[in-house]
Design a protein around this nucleic acid. Structure first.
Lengths: 252, 252
DNA sequence: ACCCGTGGGTACGCAACCGGACGGATCGCG
DNA sequence: CGCGATCCGTCCGGTTGCGTACCCACGGGT
């Protein structure tokens, strides 16, 4: 494990030593060992706190991130200041694809830490160089961009066609996947902002999921007790997106 | 102009001669002349009919397309067979980005001609080769992929937060932009499928746009008479997306 | 001139959500 | 232990959009 206890003190970067057996980020771990080590040598582990912004709409992206235990939301921001989640990024992906795509900002989107944890950080400029010089890395980023496009596209259909309950269940499934942990520490307020609905709508949906025996809740926390029931209450979008990530990152 | 009368007979490919001053596709026309000519030499003009599928979900993508006067919808398909438009592609873009991203199929998305017209067609395999060998082309496709991601992302927020009327107005704005024509020949049924709502909801929205003096309608056709009023009735998403395309394709 | 297929207007009951608001429960902190 | 902040349950009216259905209008074809 790369991780020590860096999560406690967000501002204390930890140098990573080459030769570790896996970083914990599946995208990086899919790279050939030598290339991965060279890359990771230029990164550092950071602890990220919930609600912490990683990049803001219309501002320069300073760094790219490869989550390990942290989860990040990509939010499309509207003029009224609200933001709707377009994609979730965990240890299967990276934050800052725009850098790979040759730009250092995105006008309508921001990245926010959703669940605290650790991530590997690399300077945007360094990463830009790396991308031009490393064809294997580029191949994986192509594939990841594809998966992201798919996730965005599914999000559009999901938002128009599915109920809050279905979308919430989907969200919980994909999130617990990424943290490998069935306890989600977050508030209904937070969920309502992510899904772009009222808090009261979240409350109602949570009750339904409780009645179905899928989850239990405490103040500020949701416990997934029956994943299968959550899956029943969810829309197809979960499967579509997670299948694509399996295709992208076989095994591991 | 490349175009002759090929629109009439969809199956009659027309070889394009190098040295033409512009193809009519803004993405291609943004390339340096020599590179563009080399590329276009491997393409042919095709007339496309409305409702014609260009690629299907989960099937091999045979060709990439650069619309000239045609407009194409990218639809995310759900299990119940319905499809919701995630992006519109006209002469500012291309259809088949997946090929550029290193895959020859997309599991959840299909491409359908929305408004008949012409497009440049290139074999997918040929295009794959071209992309690996032509760095300039690659740069533009990177940028286009970025714009597409932005469009998808905006679509998610738009679908969750905006009314049918706003979304319809936005759709008409962006579509008339691409065809440079204020007459749209399409049915309300078609619009309802594209936006993923009931036909009756489209009818209501159309009436409101009529009452505002923005459009007039005939059976099977909508006429945009006051673009400014349409803009007032639309959501911000139109501006966000079209600004990005201006950034991508300066002038022209 | 007529027919009939398609496109469009409309209506009804109903479900999902919204916006706003209020009050009670829970928890951390001093 | 008590205070205050946060989080959550709930309620209201109101709007938007759904599902279904029926009928009329137009217009191309024979």
């Amino acid at each position: 494990m790369v991780s020590t206890g860096a999560g406690e003190q967000a501002k204390a970067p930890v140098r990573v030593l080459p030769g570790i057996d896996h970083t914990g980020n599946r995208l990086l771990d899919a790279l050939p060992l030598a290339e991965r080590d060279a890359l990771v040598a230029k990164m550092e582990v950071r602890g990220l706190q919930s609600e912490e912004p990683l990049y803001e709409a219309g501002q320069r992206i300073k760094a790219v991130w490869f989550p390990i235990t942290a989860i990040v939301s990509l939010l499309t921001t509207l003029n009224d200041g609200t933001g709707v989640e377009t994609a979730t990024v965990g240890r299967e992906g990276m934050v800052g694809v725009a850098i790979f795509l040759g730009d250092d900002q995105v006008p309508n989107s921001r990245g926010v830490v959703q669940l605290r944890g650790e991530a590997l950080r690399m300077d945007a400029a360094d990463f830009g160089v790396e991308v031009t010089e490393n064809p294997t890395l580029r191949q994986f980023l192509f594939a990841y961009t594809r998966a992201l496009l798919l996730q965005f596209g599914q999000g559009v259909a999901c938002a128009t066609s599915h109920t809050v309950r279905e979308r919430l269940a989907r969200w919980m499934l994909q999130t617990t996947d990424r943290v490998a942990n069935d306890e989600l520490e977050l508030t209904q307020q937070f969920l309502s902002e992510i899904l772009g609905v009222r808090r009261a709508s979240i409350t109602a949906a949570i009750h339904e999921l409780q009645n179905r025996g899928a989850i239990t809740t405490r103040r500020g926390s949701i416990h997934v007790v029956r994943r299968d029931r959550l899956a029943e209450a969810s829309c197809e979008c979960y499967d579509v997106v997670s299948d694509e990530y399996e295709r992208l990152l076989p095994n591991a």
